[in-house]
Amino acid sequence: MVHPYLDDPSGVVALAHRGFSLDGRENSLAAFAAAVDLGFRYVETDAHATGDGVAVALHDATLDRTTDGRGRVADLPWSAVARARIGGTEPVPRLDELLGTWPDLRVNVDVKDARAVGPVAAAVERTRAHDRVCVTSFSRARRLATLARLTRPVATSAGTREVALFLAAHRAHASRAAARALRDVDCLQVPAAHGRLRVVDAGTVAAAHAAGRAVHVWTVNEPATMHHLLDLGVDGIVTDRADLLRDVLRARGAWL
């Protein structure tokens, strides 16, 4: 059974990476609003937790790169993080704020730190967003720990080790082992390549589909690459250039 998160009528999951912003306001409510205004039904975000247990939508472990604040999020109370401004203008959003602002928006949540596990689960529970959330992490342990705190299933994506096991089994023509590597997840979210290693090609897409798993590729910003991946049969694309992905999908008749 396909999780409701993945049940998109267009046939292509178009994910706006950290919302949509060309001026450094990533992971802000303004960036997520810009993606929604473009017509996106999916956004991707990252989650850390403050020292007093508030889950925030922020990629970095510190405030330094994207905000006018300083310090590690995990060492600061929410009151301090709330004063920081992304790009000098936008507040750092709480995860439950993102989930609650757009009740129909589907949100891909990358749990970045073990201390964020409980706060992320609490935000999903508080907003009852289970049907429209995908919990992912490079760490399988973090993902499973988050799921263990939820009262209902959410969609899930493979961690680094699971991806490696899947690719190794696929290349060894061990289809059962490849499927087994993905047995605990709903989708495979991966880069098109990792260094010289080609991760996404016709064979890996077919193997994931044979295992009943969707393939989402990150982070793709060139229209030619978007077209190529869609021609391969991928089920979703994560992009910083939501405007360009929308144009590509419109041209292919896959934008609702």
Rank of each mutant, 00 (worst) to 15 (best):
C187M: 14
H130V: 05
R18E: 13
D7V: 00
A121L: 06
A116K: 06
E162V: 03
A179W: 01
H227K: 13
R25V: 14
V120Y: 04
A35I: 08
L105T: 07
G71S: 07
G51A: 12
R250M: 07
D68N: 15
G212H: 07
V199C: 05
H59M: 14
A174D: 12
R126F: 02
G212R: 08
E162C: 03
T62V: 13
G203A: 15
A174V: 00
V73D: 14
V248L: 11
V107W: 06
E125A: 10
D247E: 14
H17W: 13
R143T: 11
A164S: 08
G100I: 01
A214D: 09
R180A: 13
L256V: 00
A33W: 01
F138L: 07
W102S: 04
A174Q: 08
H194T: 01
D64F: 10
T156G: 06
G159C: 06
A169H: 02
A224K: 13
T127A: 09
S157W: 08
W255I: 01
L150Y: 02
V13T: 09
P153I: 09
D60E: 15
A206R: 13
D113C: 12
V111P: 04
A164C: 01
N108I: 06
G212Q: 02
V54N: 02
V43C: 11
R250Q: 14
R65W: 12
D23W: 05
S139H: 03
A122H: 01
A80L: 08
H130I: 08
A74K: 08
H227P: 06
S21I: 08
H59N: 15
R241S: 10
F20K: 01
A169Q: 04
W255L: 03
D113M: 11
G100Y: 08
A61T: 14
A35G: 12
A61D: 15
V234D: 06
V12N: 00
L167P: 02
H59G: 12
L188E: 09
S28T: 14
Y42Q: 06
L256S: 02
A211E: 00
T45Y: 13
G118F: 00
Y5F: 15
D110W: 05
E222G: 12
N221L: 08
A158S: 13
M226V: 14
D52P: 01
N27Y: 10
R241N: 08
P191I: 04
G71W: 04
G71I: 12
D231Y: 08
T239C: 11
G69H: 11
L197K: 01
R183D: 10
A84D: 06
A224P: 13
